[in-house]
Nucleic acid binder design. Structure first.
Lengths: 203, 203
DNA sequence: ATTTGGTTTAACCATTTGGTTAACAAATCT
DNA sequence: AGATTTGTTAACCAAATGGTTAAACCAAAT
């Protein structure tokens, strides 16, 4: 048997499935399209992953844990809040420009089936907010930043970074920008967003 | 013929379709489910709307122009930026608590088919940002707020208001909150968000 | 060379799904 | 009232779709 080829085919299927599921979602994706994308027969999908549901779950888990480390960058380092925000904003926007369908895919599929997230939370890389909360509280006590609930600050940071990607089609029309102009606006946000947040919370 | 009943049935179908499409999306929705939801035969859907695609477009347009006036509230009034932001934040969060699937539906379907938005922009109620831009520029010149690109401020306002609804399932898990706690957090944002923005841009 | 085991495919199957048809029911018109 | 138009339904249809099967393939072990 071909152990080497084995892994290659399974990976090829998973990669093809990632591409298709990310763009079409669970409901919009077709097994035939995934097979075509992988350049193999449809029956092979079932040979390796049994069903569409199981293939989807493999894809979702894999993609979720591509995104999770990006979130952890703001949660699990020991720098100051200002540095956390600056680094995260700069990194995250670069990251999503490379994975433009990823945030929307995660959000859409978790809205479709919210219970699914319970299958992820046991994973050691599932983002944990405790360290971030402690840092915020500490800097509030030290008089570095204004009082704010850490949860609200966390949501604000994510919102300002993620939303412009998720809502790109509608924002482009509201602002009457073409693709190039919108991309420039996102580039500008690498520093704009951090400044906006820091201006709001610094004393 | 039953003019009265006529309108009632068509409206009933549209309302049922709105409920189903909002929760399941175009790809996940089934004509049979819409018919069941409306309490009528599946053939009637085609009698009134010809095809799933046309029914969907009717639903999408209708729902888009439920949301649009909310966006216009921040764009087309003559109050100061601070008041615009305060009013919008308070109103919008109340509005979406009443229509929890709406923002996600619009975002999801426009990502699925971005060209569709061209069918909306000719409508007189399609949000126009000019007035907002002028007000921001004016208040910057008057030294009331710090320099910021109006487009960036607009995105920030929308992001901070809309994102917590769109990402509810994942944020709930990140923050380890139950439904009631998350709802309280959203209630708090009615004032928190406006304060956060105003703190950032005021001189 | 033959066997053996996993790998891959073409063909097939059952169900779902959007859509149609033809007949029936109920208003409206004359 | 009788004819005509509009509204509604049950039954049906063709295509799409997820999934299965049996046979072919192929590399390694014997």
């Amino acid at each position: 048997m071909a152990k080497e080829k084995d892994v290659t085919t399974e990976t090829e299927i998973l990669n093809a499935a990632k591409r298709v599921f990310q763009q079409k979602g669970m409901d919009g994706a077709r097994m035939q399209e995934i097979a075509d994308e992988a350049g193999i027969n449809k029956a092979l999908l079932h040979y390796y992953f049994r069903s569409k549901q199981l293939l989807f779950e493999a894809v979702f888990k894999s993609l979720f844990f591509v995104l999770a480390p990006e979130i952890n960058k703001i949660l699990n380092d020991d720098s100051s809040i200002f540095d956390k925000i600056k680094n995260f904003t700069n990194n995250y926007i670069s990251f999503v420009i490379k994975h433009p369908f990823l945030p929307n895919f995660i959000i859409q599929e978790l809205n479709r089936n919210p219970e699914f997230i319970t299958k992820l939370i046991t994973n050691q890389y599932f983002p944990n907010i405790e360290n971030f909360k402690n840092t915020v509280k500490k800097e509030i006590n030290e008089g570095i930043i204004k009082p704010i609930k850490p949860e609200q600050l966390f949501i604000n940071v994510l919102a300002l970074n993620i939303f412009p990607f998720v809502s790109k089609p509608i924002l482009k029309e509201f602002l009457k920008l073409n693709d190039k102009q919108y991309h420039q606006l996102l580039e500008d946000r690498k520093t704009e967003v951090a400044d906006f947040i820091i201006n709001s919370i610094k004393i």
